[in-house]
Write a protein that binds this DNA or RNA. Structure first.
Length: 517
RNA sequence: CGCGGGGUAGAGCAGCGGUAGCUCGUCAGGCUCAUAACCUGAAGAUCGCCGGUUCGAUUCCGGCCCCCGCAACCA
């Protein structure tokens, strides 16, 4: 019986069109999902859109349309992005305006309330008339709004619901301290992993929780901001967007229907959130608190199992680590990159050129350099030169690949021993760059081998021994690119397929895999 | 003393107690199977600054300077 595995991205907030950070996150999550699927796991992978809250309400107002119309438009942009990035079609796409999610969020609220972790409190906010916005202390400069320093701030008192976040300090610390174990494929060897990856982020959140937690507001007055899920049994309040959005990770797998009434998706919550050992979440570093502390506390408050792992990405920046922003005009549009370089090139860049956990830059220039060096000159060129030799000399390994293919079908994702250790370790640690590095090291070794042994000469030799050497060298090279093709499957599925087909048909690619730009 | 990350060749990064490594770029040579691709070699770094520990520090400790995030509505 196949084991279940659940991985999710953070739902991007639809106040703007998809950016490269989200593309990176979902490409990584998809690569993990594909690898798990190839390894015989039954995989639920989740993404979607976070659609409530003040910013969206305002955006819709600006555009002069209903919020629902606005979010429908933007959500479809996100949905359209998935095939462009080569995300497997099995991915679940949840919208926080979906009916069943709305209902789940309300049930979640009631459950947390019933367990005594929600209370009502007077909440005073500073409001800048100039901006028409509430201001937090951190936004103020010397107690005044930096944009409107001459106007004084209005203090508004309103009643909000609060979540008893402070009650979960100890449980959160326990969660961080207990390490989850992950087994390497079917072997018994297991490695210890922090709850938050990388460990530096775990230290960061741990330190934050250790300092003490403040309860936070989880509702807004409907009269001021109606675009949210209604708080159960209170006409005047809607949920704060985070409280609602985070619930998607459980509503996506059918909670609470399968638990409460056992009808819509019977047992699915148990399967994906319990039997898996918990969900694996990807998020950006700005989401560290929400995902690894607030959400975990909410789950605990509702009596539900916590996540298994939270993987924290860095940001994609412009040159020199400068933040990308529309006003600086230094953003990079993932759709435009795919259009120019192709889906797998985009996946390649996100997986191999960007740092797996820290900030790293992406510009069109860098993208092009990496593309030419590693895809056109590296991978693509190697496949061409090896296949050309194999084709013209009639040397093939296709007939020897049958057993291997059979084992793939039985859900064993096996890569050749020359690559196994590093490659597998990278996947286990969610350090996909490490796995990609391992693949690219085979490319380098193979190019060198061709240079040193010159099999293209040997196979034409009159000498039988030279001829045999040449043949065996070409077979080695074919095995190498076969290994590369297999190993690339989770990362660059289309390219992987093309490489394998070349080998099976013993034909060099009709057109280069990656044309030089 | 709010929290965290970082400062290593032109660029992007790795190393973390004992001849300073990788990728891209630059220059020179080689090869011709390949997408003017590939291979080899060279140039290029007082490892942010100052002290300390040590036989020995880029690596450990202390101080300082500079960048960059976060600070409870941005992946």
């Amino acid at each position: 019986m196949s084991k279940p595995f659940y991985i999710t991205t953070t739902l991007p907030y639809v106040n703007s069109i998809p950016h490269i950070g989200f593309a990176t996150e979902i490409i990584r999550a998809d690569s993990i999902a594909r690898w798990k699927r190839a390894s015989g796991f039954e995989v639920f992978s989740n993404t979607g859109t976070d659609e409530h809250g003040l910013k969206i309400f305002q955006k819709a107002k600006e555009a002069g349309i209903e919020p629902q119309v606005y979010v429908d438009q933007v959500a479809s942009k996100f949905k359209e992005l998935l095939p462009i990035l080569g995300i497997s079609p099995e991915v679940n796409f949840i919208r926080t305006t979906d009916k069943h999610h709305t209902k789940a969020a309300q049930t979640f609220w009631q459950l947390v309330d019933k367990n005594g972790f929600i209370y009502k409190k007077n909440y005073s906010v500073k409001y800048c008339i100039g901006c028409e916005l509430e201001k937090t202390e951190s936004e103020l400069v010397e107690g005044k709004c930096p944009l409107h320093p001459l106007q004084s701030l209005e203090i508004i008192n309103e009643e909000n619901y609060f979540f008893r976040f402070s009650a979960f300090q100890e449980q959160l610390l326990d969660l961080y301290d207990k390490s989850s174990s992950s087994s390497v494929n079917n072997s018994t060897e297991s490695s210890r992993q922090p709850f938050v990856i990388p460990e530096s982020r775990q230290r960061e959140i741990r330190a934050f929780v250790e300092r003490g937690l403040d309860d936070f507001s989880i509702s807004r007055l409907k009269s001021k901001m109606p675009w949210g899920i209604p708080v159960p049994e209170d006409e005047e309040q809607v949920m704060y967007v985070w409280f609602d959005a985070l619930v998607n990770y459980v509503s996506a797998v059918g909670w609470p229907d399968d638990v409460v009434a056992d009808k819509a998706m019977p047992g699915s919550f148990k399967k994906w959130c319990v039997e898996t050992g918990g969900m694996v979440q990807y998020c950006g570093k700005d989401n560290l608190r929400q995902q690894s502390a607030m959400w975990q506390a909410m789950l605990l408050a509702a009596g539900l199992p916590t996540s298994k792992t939270v993987i924290v990405d860095g940001f994609v920046t412009a040159d020199g680590g400068v933040k990308m922003s529309k006003s600086l005009g230094n953003t990079v549009d993932p759709v435009a990159l795919v259009k120019e370089f192709g889906t797998d090139a985009m996946r390649y860049y996100c997986l191999h050129e960007l740092h797996p956990f820290e900030d790293s830059p992406c510009t069109v220039e860098r993208f092009k350099d990496a593309y030419n060096a590693n895809l056109a000159n590296g991978l693509g060129n190697l496949v061409s030169r090896v296949m050309k030799m194999a084709e013209t000399s009639g040397i093939t390994i296709a007939d020897k690949l049958k057993t291997y293919e059979d084992s793939l079908k039985s859900g064993k994702f096996i890569v050749s021993a020359i690559l196994s250790t590093e490659y597998m370790a990278g996947l286990e640690e969610y350090n996909l760059k490490k796995s990609m590095d391992a693949i690219w090291s085979i490319i380098a070794v193979s190019d060198k081998l061709i240079q040193v042994k010159q099999p293209f000469k040997l196979v034409k030799s009159e000498d039988d021994k030279d001829k045999a050497d040449g043949k065996s060298c070409i077979e080695t090279l074919l095995n190498n690119i076969h290994t590369i093709g297999v190993a690339l499957q989770p990362f660059m599925p289309t390219t992987a397929q093309m490489i394998l087909e070349c080998i099976y048909n013993n034909k060099m690619p009709a057109t280069p895999l990656f044309l030089r730009k």
